[in-house]
Amino acid sequence: MDMSVVLPEECLSQITSLTSPRDACRLSAVSPFFKSAADSDAVWETFLPSDYEGIISNSASSSLLSTCSSKKELYFHLSHKPIFINSGNMSFALEKESGKVCCMVGAKAGISVTWGSKSYWTWPSLPESRFPEVAELKPVCWFEVKGKIETKLLSPETTYAAYLVFKFADSRNGFDTRPVELCFYIGGMEEEERSKVFLDARAGAPNLSQDRGDGWMEIEIGEFFKKHGEDEGVVYNLFDFDGFSSKHGLIIEGIELRPKSV
């Protein structure tokens, strides 16, 4: 018995929407009837974040809502190319396989880089950055980067990791001779994850940073579970206070939050 002739399309769409975007793409190769159900707006609407309309209409790409001819097209648009929200200081995209939200907060919005009134950073524009400005460290003895990142846009019930996205200027110093201290926690919590990492990997030292393939490096600075309805934000802090040697040349693009692959 061919079920697909007796089962209504809504039923098939309902089944598909309870799988995943990756499964739905595969199901569309089963038969033309399946394709029509698996490509339907009813299915892809459920794979988009529940507040996608609000997010997109407040972004620099608000026209997407009218130019995309289907929810599936919109989904893939968001998974191929981030859109920019919060006055361009935050990028928003979907993980292609799962539809989970990935965000990157640009240095300008995501890190607090001043001590008192004095800034130890310059703000160059780099062609390889998605943001208009990135933060480059001037020579300092005491190094600190910290910030709090909103998590309310992230997908619920998901384990996320936070990554520092960075690189070094041609002239750099100090990050290979001493590690920086790292601490990370969910806003409102006492517990902290603390560790020490070398941002500039030395020969022989474990290299925890990875080349992203987009001109930047990344290093994981912490992970957290985003619960439903909880958006306390996450707090991070990178510092090295007791160095007598000067540091400079670190360039920070931002902090990325994306689902931790299992």
């Binding site: 061919d2 079920m3 697909s4 595969r26 199901l27 190769a29 089963v30 038969s31 033309p32 399946f34």
Partner: peptide, 14 residues
Amino acid sequence: VEYVRAFFGIENDF
């Protein structure tokens, strides 16, 4: 895809 076709008893008419 083959598993799903067998599951639903679908003749592939692509």
